[in-house]
């Protein structure tokens, strides 16, 4: 069993398909919707956590892509300019998901992208503006 987060972007005409039903029924994947933004008639974006057998998840993702849904792993959509980070800790103050934390030995920032829930609070909280998340 593995657990992985994906960002899904739906084209305007894909809103009427029960894709989550198929992910559960046909691919035996447990899905957890962490964030959703739907603009009817325009587009929609979703942050999903998929849990299941590695092979099933791969096939499920393949199925989604065939439905014209953009499905990309979350870590590929998070951009963090680590080189410029000064380890001030401001981002950790707002990251209630626990993705951004300070190492209590070195006091350097640690970023576990797999914990991110795309609340996007770190983007304005970083005084150096080092975060970008491509959700929409």
């Amino acid at each position: 069993m593995i657990k992985k987060r994906y960002i899904l972007n739906f084209p305007p005409d894909s809103g009427d398909k029960p894709f989550s039903y198929h992910l559960v029924k046909d691919y035996d994947i447990r899905i957890n919707i962490l964030k959703a933004e739907v603009y009817p008639g325009k587009r929609g974006s979703l942050l999903l956590e998929l849990q299941g057998k590695k092979e099933n998840i791969e096939n499920g993702v393949e199925y989604l892509r065939k439905q014209n849904i953009v499905c990309e792993s979350l870590d590929k959509r998070i951009h963090f300019n680590e080189e410029k980070c000064i380890d001030c800790g401001n981002c950790t103050a707002v990251c209630f998901a626990g993705a951004l934390t300070m190492n209590h030995e070195t006091w350097k920032l640690e970023f576990d992208k797999s914990q991110c829930v795309v609340c996007e609070l770190c983007i304005p909280a970083c005084p150096l503006h080092l975060f970008e998340i491509d959700f929409r």
């Binding site: 380890d87 800790g89 950790t92 103050a93 209630f96 300070m102 350097k108």
Partner: peptide, 23 residues
């Protein structure tokens, strides 16, 4: 503060630095 939590009126509150100890 450095432990990650403080207690205020019995409530556990998560702490974060805003200046860089590493630097």
């Amino acid at each position: 503060l450095r432990s990650g939590f403080i207690k205020i009126d019995g409530k556990k509150v998560r702490t974060a630095p805003v200046s860089s100890l590493a630097k």
